[in-house]
Design a protein around this nucleic acid. Structure first.
Length: 343
RNA sequence: CCGCGCUUAGCUCAGCCCGGCAGAGCAGCCGACUGUAGAUCGGCUUGUCCCCCGUUCAAAUCGGGGAGUGCGGACCA
């Protein structure tokens, strides 16, 4: 694979690369890229799109590490109670492996790391304290403002969080920090603070955040705002049917985004088209080989939301089916991670 | 250790002073209008009023005790 193709693969469907020059330079060698997930709520399509991209990274020959950031999950306003960290970490790992596989890549090629495996060493603790000594409260508050839960009486844990994450980059020997664009503030802090402590500043790659299905941002606290990766078929169809989807509009259109960032890349990998079955009355069946063509028709209002939704729901459902099946065998994983929901 | 505030619907809160059928906004649900959803309009649901004891014909409301949470003060040899 030539350098240009490699770069295209790594950078496609991203929101931002910091910086493009640095990334091109890194790709001359075999860099390590990492992404961290704090095991808090159930995993959804948004997570899936970021994990789908891991297939791109593997194909481009990068070393891929996935951090299951258990301590982060507790540190951020105790989103996960300490007693559930292990159960949720196990669930996240299984779900992530399922998504990697569903994206057509091999989970064996990914190195999984859990936060507590390395974040409690004395070297790590010393670095962390030294960073805490020379970083202001307002600096870390700003860094974490899009990630850490905001409240009138913020906990100290939320302030330490960005420092911890910065140090993770160094401790995991990652050349590239990958994550949603909401992580930008934290990794910009990393680029600033790591060199002052003797480590390299990471190159950053950010994934776009998907719109919620009710318009606006996707919200973890709003049940219908996103499809979970273990949702039953009926629920997927229900959520997509109920989704905000104005005719001809691309802005804030979660359905289109699901197709763009998840369904089409998977179809592309398998060399299969997206086929919409439609009554003759509304124009008959249509076949799309690329997202761009579909979007063009939608914008031109040659493709009606109702026809789009019906088909999209089936393809999305199909995309998560392998994950759902993986959990069908092991119901305890979900039940123990979310006893309130699955008890 | 001491003082003060807060705790009421899924969420944000009003009601408490001065006891008399537990409320509002948002969210949610159902219809109407749309070849989807949203918006709009019409309708509807929701409660351990933090807990215990007491006063009273009657307590979210008054008195006592306690819990949780937050803020402030004090201590600083």
């Amino acid at each position: 694979m030539d350098a240009e193709e490699r770069y295209r693969l790594v950078a496609r469907n991203t929101a931002e690369v910091v910086t493009e020059e640095e990334l091109r330079e890194l790709l001359d060698a075999d860099p390590t890229i990492y992404i961290g997930y704090a095991p808090t709520g159930e995993m959804h399509i948004g997570h899936f799109t970021t994990i789908r991209k891991l297939a791109d990274f593997l194909q481009a020959g990068l070393d891929v590490k996935v951090l299951v950031a258990d301590l982060h999950a507790h540190l951020d306003d105790e989103k996960s109670p300490f007693s559930l960290l292990d159960a949720r970490s196990a669930y996240y790992r299984a779900a992530i492996e399922g998504m990697v596989e569903a994206a057509g890549a091999d989970p064996e090629q990914i190195e999984f790391v859990q936060g507590r495996e390395f974040e409690l060493t004395s070297e790590y603790a010393l670095d962390l304290l030294r960073m805490a000594a020379d970083t202001t409260v307002s600096r870390v508050t700003r860094a974490g403002s899009e990630v850490v839960r905001q409240s009138e009486n913020p906990k100290l844990g939320g302030l330490v969080y960005p420092l911890l994450q910065s140090l993770d980059v160094a401790a995991l020997d990652a050349d590239i920090a990958y994550g949603g664009i909401d992580q930008r503030g934290i990794y910009m802090l990393s680029r600033e603070v790591l060199p002052e402590h003797g480590y390299d500043a990471p190159v950053c790659l950010f994934a776009p955040l998907l719109s919620g299905l009710s318009g606006g941002k996707m919200s973890a606290s709003e049940a219908g705002s996103g499809v979970n990766v273990t949702d039953p078929s009926e629920r997927v169809h229900e959520k997509i049917t109920d989704a905000y989807c104005p005719q001809g509009e691309v802005e804030n259109n979660g359905v289109l985004e699901y197709l763009r960032y998840l369904v089409f890349p998977i179809l592309d990998e398998r060399d299969e088209p997206f086929v919409i079955e439609r009554p003759e009355e509304y124009g008959g069946d249509v076949t799309y080989w690329s997202y761009d063509d579909l979007e063009a028709d939608f914008v031109a209002e040659d493709l009606h939301p109702q026809d789009l939704k019906a088909t999209a729901a089936s393809y999305i459902d199909e995309a998560i089916t392998p994950i759902r099946e993986r959990f069908a065998d092991r119901p305890a994983l979900l039940r123990e991670a979310y006893p309130e929901t699955y008890a």
